[in-house]
Design a protein around this nucleic acid. Structure first.
Length: 429
RNA sequence: CGGGGCGUGGUGUAAUGGUAGCACGAGUGCUUUGGGAGCACUUAGUCCCAGUUCGAAUCUGAGCGCCCCGACCA
């Protein structure tokens, strides 16, 4: 496994001794959490709640976020996205230009300096549009795709369901700029494919449905990517013919499946893990964002926006992949590739575990090493199941008696003895 | 924002007007080591304010916080 370029620069990023890991597991979940994602992520030491809808990502949780982030970043760059970071502090004037200062009720407003008033950014059309205006003059400057991965703030009336609806959350938002509606349409379709690739990569591709949703005032429909889960707050109707779905919000106006015209649907609660939206000229009109085409004619720039909430996606993955013992991370987003458990503190066992750990570390394999000396095997197994790293490797007297380490995948029951000299390559494969 | 529920060590709980207790966690020591070990000692708590009472975790009022249902969610 090759290290992702932004995951870490030091060799130590690729390993961790559990005796040093910040964040302890809990035997019981805090009683005020009812959703699976919140219970498991808190118990396993991935996140901590500061106040309603506001969570800390502990080292384990942050590693998962970074995995997700890198998958998303890579896909955004593949379709021409250029990454930047825009400010979180937005001047009131920007939001007055679009008439959204008073109408977006989730806007956190705060005092600035002197008589200045500010908002914490819930989305960035008000910032990206005037920014782009400074650099777009002609059709030669188009199309343009800008994205960021950044903390958003929304004053939700009711935060809920662990990481599903928060007041502060990480989001990838990409804004696209086009010289024609046809070009926007084409990119929108491309982005659908990109989103599918992302959801497949993080592991929920088979569990996710492309869903027709309200287009607001800008277009007839937008598309959401919805993943059925108990903690979901949307209701969708899955077409039994083509595997696409309709959001409840447009169910009254849509009788047949907009994709295949079928009439049979299955109702389910679902989590919106992504949304793609044609803004068209709504914001370019507000900010006078024009370009000149090759005939010298001035036209409004066409825009689209495309969002994915990273924390919500992490919560959704937990909602989908878990059992009664804990989380079962898909490989691509697991905080570590392997969980090395040392059972017993005899020097022979310790030496064997340390040796394997040292070699994995050297080769850049991300491994969590449970080297804790004061924990019983039962507790180490329970923690390993709870944390949910895909591969568990046990070093014990029993395994060493057969010159082996014991391998078990988190999502399987099967336990396999692998000879010591073959273990390294097996873990890396 | 409407309705409901709940606030006791880090976590889960008991005490319903009369000595704040238990389990897990954490710390020290010894013994343990294949599915959340044992013994001993230790650590740590009634959300805040006001009131009623001889006495309040418990009753009353106000506040704050958290959760759930609903509304809302470019």
């Amino acid at each position: 496994m090759s290290p992702s370029r932004t995951l870490g620069t030091s060799e130590d990023y690729f390993n961790m001794r559990q005796s040093n890991l910040f964040g302890k597991t809990l035997r019981e979940a805090p009683k005020d959490e009812t959703t699976i994602n919140a219970k498991l992520l808190i118990r396993a030491g991935f996140i901590n709640k500061l106040t309603a809808g506001v969570y800390t990502y502990l080292p384990l949780g942050w590693r998962v976020i970074r995995k997700i982030e890198n998958i998303i970043r890579e896909e955004m760059e593949k379709v021409g996205g250029q990454e930047l970071v825009m400010p979180v502090l937005h001047p009131k004037e920007s939001w007055q230009i679009t008439d959204r200062w008073d109408t977006v009720d989730v806007l956190f407003k705060l005092e600035g300096w002197e008589s200045k008033e500010l908002a914490l950014g819930p989305t960035h059309e008000e910032v990206v549009t005037p920014l782009v205006k400074k650099h777009i003059q002609t059709y030669k400057d188009l199309p343009l795709y800008l994205f960021q991965i950044q903390t958003k703030f929304r004053k939700e009336k009711r935060a809920k369901s662990g990481l599903i609806r928060n007041r502060e959350f990480l989001m990838k938002d990409l804004y696209s700029f086009h010289k024609s509606e046809a070009d926007l349409d084409e990119y929108y379709e491309k982005m659908k494919e990109v989103y599918w690739r992302i959801f497949k990569k993080v592991g929920i591709g088979n569990e996710t449905y492309l869903t027709f949703a309200s287009g607001g005032t800008f277009s007839k429909f937008s598309h959401e990517f919805q993943t059925p889960a108990e903690a979901g707050e949307d209701v969708i109707y899955i077409c039994q013919e083509c595997r696409q779905a309709i959001n409840q919000e447009i169910r009254p106006e849509v009788k047949n499946c907009p994709n295949c015209q079928a009439k049979q649907f299955k109702e389910t609660k679902a989590i919106e893990v992504g949304n793609i939206f044609k803004l068209k000229t709504k914001f370019s009109e507000s900010f006078d964002l024009y370009f000149v085409d090759k005939h010298g004619t001035k036209g409004l720039v066409q825009m689209g926006c495309y969002g994915i909430g990273l924390g919500r996606l992490m919560g959704t993955i937990v909602e989908v992949f878990h059992d009664d013992k804990g989380i079962i991370w898909p490989k691509a987003v697991a905080p570590f590739s392997a969980h090395l458990l040392q059972l017993g503190n005899e020097s022979k066992i310790k030496a064997a575990a340390e040796k394997l750990y040292g070699r994995l570390k050297k080769q850049g394999v991300e491994v969590l090493f449970d080297d804790r000396q004061d924990k019983t095997p039962g507790e180490k197994f329970a923690d390993a199941d709870l944390i949910g790293i895909p591969l568990r490797v046990v070093v014990s007297e029993k395994s060493l008696a057969q010159k082996s380490f014991e391998f078990k995948n988190r999502n399987e029951k099967k336990i396999e003895l692998v000879p010591v000299d073959k273990s390294l390559t097996r873990i890396k494969s």
